Measured scan of single mutants.
Amino acid sequence: TTVKVNGTKYKFDTPEEAQKFAKKAADKYNLKVVVDGDDLRVE
């Protein structure tokens, strides 16, 4: 599972880890998590 934040992709072994990271990033930058198929985007 990958998470894309500000054009940078981060790869995670499990969707749970990816979800946690995406949520933290979204909170930090005051953005929202967008599900894109198997991957997540923070925008």
Rank of each mutant, 00 (worst) to 15 (best):
V5A: 03
E17S: 06
V34T: 10
G37N: 06
P15L: 13
K20S: 12
V35Q: 12
T8M: 14
V34K: 06
K4V: 15
K32E: 09
A18I: 00
A22H: 00
Y29F: 11
R41G: 04
D38M: 11
A25D: 02
T1W: 15
A26M: 04
D39W: 09
R41C: 08
K9P: 09
K11R: 12
Y29S: 05
K32P: 08
K11W: 13
V34G: 04
R41W: 08
E43W: 07
V42M: 07
V5I: 15
F21I: 00
A18Q: 01
A25N: 07
K24Y: 15
V5F: 15
D27V: 10
V35F: 12
D13A: 13
T8Q: 13
K23F: 09
A18M: 02
K9F: 13
E43S: 09
V33C: 07
K4H: 15
T2R: 05
K20Y: 12
L40K: 02
Y10R: 02
N6Q: 07
E43H: 06
V5H: 05
K20P: 00
G7M: 06
K24D: 14
K20I: 13
T8A: 11
T14N: 09
A18C: 02
A18T: 01
K23Q: 14
D27I: 11
T14W: 02
K28P: 04
D36Q: 06
K11Y: 14
Y10M: 03
L31V: 13
K28H: 11
G37V: 04
G37Y: 04
K32S: 12
K20N: 11
K28S: 07
L40G: 02
R41P: 03
A25Y: 15
K32I: 14
K11E: 09
A18F: 02
K24H: 12
T8V: 14
K9T: 15
V3D: 00
D13W: 06
K20A: 14
K20D: 12
G37K: 05
L31P: 02
K9L: 15
G7K: 06
K4E: 13
V5S: 02
G7W: 05
N6Y: 12
K11H: 13
N30F: 08
V34Y: 12
K11G: 04
G7C: 10
F21P: 00
A25C: 15
D13T: 11
A25K: 08
Q19W: 15
F21M: 02
L31Q: 06
V3T: 01
A26P: 01
V35Y: 12
E17D: 09
D13S: 13
Y29L: 13
D36Y: 07
G7E: 04
Y29I: 04
D27Q: 12
K20M: 13
V5Y: 09
R41E: 05
T14E: 03
K9S: 14
G37R: 04
F12V: 00
T8D: 05
N6G: 12
P15H: 09
F21Y: 05
A26G: 04
A22V: 03
P15G: 04
V35L: 11
F12N: 00
D38N: 12
E17R: 05
V33T: 02
N6E: 05
E16R: 07
D38G: 10
K11P: 02
T2K: 03
Y29N: 06
V33A: 03
N30W: 07
A26K: 04
T2L: 07
L40I: 12
V35A: 10
R41S: 11
V33N: 01
F21C: 04
T1C: 09
Y10V: 03
K23Y: 11
D27P: 02
K32L: 12
D27F: 10
A25G: 02
D27H: 10
N30I: 04
V3M: 01
A26C: 09
V33L: 07
A18W: 02
D39I: 15
L40D: 03
D38H: 10
T2C: 14
K11F: 14
V3H: 01
V35T: 09
T14G: 04
A26S: 06
V35W: 14
E17M: 08
E43P: 03
G7A: 05
N6I: 06
V33P: 01
K23P: 00
G37H: 05
K23T: 08
A26F: 03
A18H: 00
K20W: 11
K24P: 00
K32D: 08
Y10C: 07
V33K: 00
E43M: 11
K24R: 13
Y29M: 10
T8L: 13
E16N: 06
V33W: 05
V34S: 07
K28R: 12
G37L: 04
R41Q: 06
V33H: 01
E17F: 03
R41N: 08
Q19G: 06
E17C: 07
T2N: 06
N30A: 08
A25H: 12
F12K: 00
Q19H: 12
Y29E: 05
N6S: 05
A22D: 01
V3N: 01
N30L: 06
A25L: 15
T14A: 04
T1I: 12
K4A: 11
F12A: 00
E17P: 00
G7I: 03
E16S: 08
V5C: 05
T14M: 03
E16Y: 08
K4W: 15
A18L: 02
T1G: 04
D38Q: 11
D39T: 14
V3W: 00
D39Y: 11
T1H: 11
F21D: 00
K32C: 10
D36R: 05
D27L: 13
A25T: 14
A22I: 04
K23D: 07
N30M: 07
T1Y: 15
P15N: 07
E43V: 13
D38T: 11
V42L: 15
V33D: 02
V33I: 13
K32T: 13
D13R: 14
L31S: 11
D13G: 11
R41D: 03
K23S: 08
F12S: 00
K28N: 07
Y29Q: 05
Q19I: 14
K23E: 09
V5Q: 01
N30R: 09
G7Y: 05
Y10L: 04
R41M: 09
G7Q: 06
F21T: 01
E16A: 10
D38C: 09
Q19L: 15
K20E: 14
D39H: 10
V34H: 07
K24G: 08
V35K: 10
P15M: 13
Y29V: 03
P15R: 13
V3P: 01
A26R: 04
D39C: 15
K28C: 15
N6C: 15
E43Y: 09
Q19E: 09
D38W: 08
Y29C: 11
V3C: 03
D27C: 14
L31W: 12
R41I: 15
L40T: 03
G7P: 01
K20F: 10
T8W: 13
D39K: 05
P15E: 07
N30G: 15
K4F: 15
A25Q: 14
V5P: 01
E16K: 06
Q19T: 08
K28Y: 14
D13Q: 12
K23V: 07
D13N: 13
F12E: 00
K32Q: 12
A26W: 03
V34I: 13
G37A: 05
A26V: 03
V42E: 03
Q19S: 08
V42F: 06
K20G: 07
K24M: 14
D13F: 07
K28I: 10
E17H: 05
A18Y: 01
T14C: 04
D39L: 14
Y10D: 00
R41L: 14
K9Q: 11
K28D: 08
A25F: 15
L40N: 02
D39E: 14
V3I: 03
Q19K: 11
Y29T: 04
D27K: 13
T8K: 15
T8I: 14
V34M: 08
K32M: 12
L40S: 02
K24L: 14
E16F: 07
V42N: 02
L40H: 02
T1F: 15
V35E: 09
V5G: 01
E16H: 07
L31D: 04
V3L: 02
D27G: 07
T2G: 03
T14L: 04
L40Y: 10
P15T: 08
R41K: 12
T8C: 15
K28V: 08
Y10N: 00
V34N: 05
T1N: 07
F12R: 00
D36L: 06
D27W: 10
D13K: 13
Y29D: 05
V3G: 00
T1M: 09
T8Y: 14
Y10A: 00
K24S: 13
K24E: 14
K11V: 14
D27A: 13
A22S: 02
E43K: 06
D36T: 05
N6L: 14
V42W: 03
K4M: 15
D13M: 09
D27M: 12
Y29K: 04
A22M: 03
N6W: 14
A26H: 03
E17L: 08
V34A: 06
A25I: 15
N30S: 08
K32G: 06
K23M: 10
V5L: 14
D38L: 12
N30V: 03
V3A: 02
G7H: 06
E17V: 03
K32Y: 10
Q19D: 06
K11Q: 11
D39P: 02
K24T: 11
K32V: 14
A26L: 04
